[in-house]
Design a protein around this nucleic acid. Structure first.
Lengths: 221, 221, 221, 221
DNA sequence: AATGAATGAGCGTTCATTCAT
DNA sequence: TATGAATGAACGCTCATTCAT
């Protein structure tokens, strides 16, 4: 029984987070991805970026894919933590909480890290199932958080209606990335778009009637 | 990082056979980009995809960058044509025209070509100035078209307010790409999102008061 | 009988000198060789240098080797003509004629054309028998011309002694090429070296005794 | 055209096996250059010549230019060592030492290595500044060594006169390369030319009067 | 006579990965 | 742990040459 309990990683390779070396590699890998793009995301450049030799990076991450996976795990983890904090705002009203989440999301979208990372991930997700799945899981939890606030604002909506509205709100905000994200052409318009978003997504969440979405779909059919 | 190429490359192909070849290369290049992603976008794979030799692809496009530029020129051209058609709907009311444009955009976003192409372009635009600029120009014209309909619906808005609303609407729709685009996780929710979009973007365009956006920004400051 | 008489070139290809196109190719080829070196001596660069297409250069010179051969033929021809003129100086004494030839050679060596051409040819001759042979023939005639003057200055020398002295004088002068030739490091010393050459090669030719060379060789053995 | 590289590349190879490999590459590179010429001096042929893979040669010499530079460094180093030895002949008279240097130079010129190497270098120096500079530095030290003996033979000469005579003697000897070098047409005449060189360059060094060179230049003006 | 098109080989270089040290 | 060495494949590109037009 006791023999079965082990801390050794199931997969080959030595990529325990917390190790100085592994952390340095991951940090370098992220900065290469953000600063130079997916095409420059090579073991060589990552090694150079953290002052190591190619062989050592390969020793810690025997497959490049592993590095990507661990890197994404770490990144999504940090996003999850941030997201979790946004829910824990007990002294705010439901409306204020939704406004806060919207503000937080758009603020984050404007950051270099999020702009660069997610545009790369959306592209990579087209042909990499692992990335696609991780991205999907992440956004599912984003939708869930938004959904909590939507449901609080408009309790009569069905769970599916809540999900649909959350998807709409989340997608609309993410759409800001290639337009108003870091160094994007309309970045200076972010205050206006953030203001409209806060106002109208709250208005949408509050004013949609149960069954209204289905009715709208039918009318358009 | 990439230098801006001001002189668009002349499209190669003088003889009939040559133009056919160039077309075949461009078609293959697009299909490689869409089906396999930017990482697979190599001269060798493109040549293989159209049954040619590497040297012949290089003959018609001596620089890989030229191929990318001609390909993007062709693609954006076809989008521009499509966009132009959407404006020429004289027998519709302003509201119906805006609904039509929204429907068309989201319908297009759901297509494989647009989903794949633009997710790749958003990522490439991060570190390729030529692509970034082409994408910017394209979306500028999209915003302009949407802006025409917004202005028609709400003539009292200032040009800047119209631009801001158009940007908001366009960005919100584009955000559907990584969520509801081709083979994306919530693709089946597209009818609902398209319905909400049509309804609420029209409502937004009609009901925003002149000066209201500025007021919203100030309140949030 | 009459059918056997033809102006068509024996070898394939159409590289009749005098033709405008062929002359332009040859001129461009020489300038590429001199200005950019043997590594840049490609059909493409030659074609570009004379504003033609690759296919046309290949049409006139189906094999690159042919171009080189014709080019060298022309070049050595022009050198032969120059050399011939140097002999036809009837109103000068033997000594003055030798001084004239030496001056002419060193003056020519200082020219861009000769400096560049012969340094390239010496290298190419290492592994190209055609070039090696052409170079040999050319220098043979140079030695012969010098030998005529040496023999006139010192009629008692045997033909072989004349040839040896001519070879020594010619080699010594050619050695100026990589040192004092066009844009070479000691080019500014050419007047001094030319003066010493004229003085001492004449002195050598005049003062060597028959049999002396053999004696010198034996002493050193 | 080629940029001057001021920092000489560190010679690669840390492990014993690595230094052996680097040596093998350099040896193969030299033999390719000598046996097949500059046009055949490719990474692929060098790799084949030492039984390695292209990637490994590129590993040890990431840039082809580095290989050339290290190769030349090694070669010139060996020539410098040889040259240095020729000066250290304390038991000989000045005249005998000059004769020795002349004999050594011409003997070396007749070797395959020197004949091939320097004819290639003279050509490459036309359009490669790095090579041109290395060749210049090498010959500067050659002239200096010759100059020491000339000055000892004729102490009244000015430093500039010594340099001029050394240049004349060195250039005259180097001129033997394309005529009497390895497998060159008049290689069999080398004993005679070496004998004349020894005799007459010594005579020249001894008998030139201070100021005589200037006088000769003026007379010719 | 001239040229666009096409080929097959080769170029220097970079890549992820393996392995002995 | 860490790294130098090595591999085999692929990269974009250039080459001389051929051929139909």
């Amino acid at each position: 029984m006791t023999e079965l309990v082990t801390d050794a990683p199931v997969r080959p390779g030595v990529y325990l987070r917390g190790t100085e070396t592994v952390d340095a590699i991951l940090k370098a890998a992220l900065s290469v991805l953000l600063d130079e793009g997916a095409a420059a995301f090579t073991i060589r450049r990552i090694a150079a970026a953290c002052g190591m030799k190619v062989g050592n990076v390969s020793y810690h991450f025997p497959r490049k894919e592993m590095l990507i996976q661990v890197l994404l795990d770490d990144l999504f983890n940090s996003y999850d933590v941030k997201l979790e904090l946004s829910v824990r705002q007990p002294n705010l009203s439901a409306e204020e909480r939704l406004r806060t989440v919207i503000a937080m999301c758009l603020d984050d979208i404007a950051s270099k890290r999020t702009t660069r990372l997610f545009t790369e991930l959306w592209a990579l997700a087209n042909h990499n199932d692992f990335i696609a799945e991780r991205v999907r899981i992440f956004y599912s939890s984003v939708h869930e958080v938004i959904g909590e606030h939507v449901a609080a604002l408009n309790p009569r909506l069905s769970p599916d209606e809540v999900r649909t509205l959350s998807l709409f709100i989340s997608a609309s905000m993410e759409g800001a990335t290639p337009f108003l994200g870091y160094q994007k052409p309309w970045a200076n318009k972010m205050p206006a778009i953030a203001a409209i978003s806060a106002e109208w997504f709250v208005k949408l969440a509050k004013s949609i009637e149960p069954g209204e979405i289905s009715r709208m779909i039918e009318q358009r059919g």
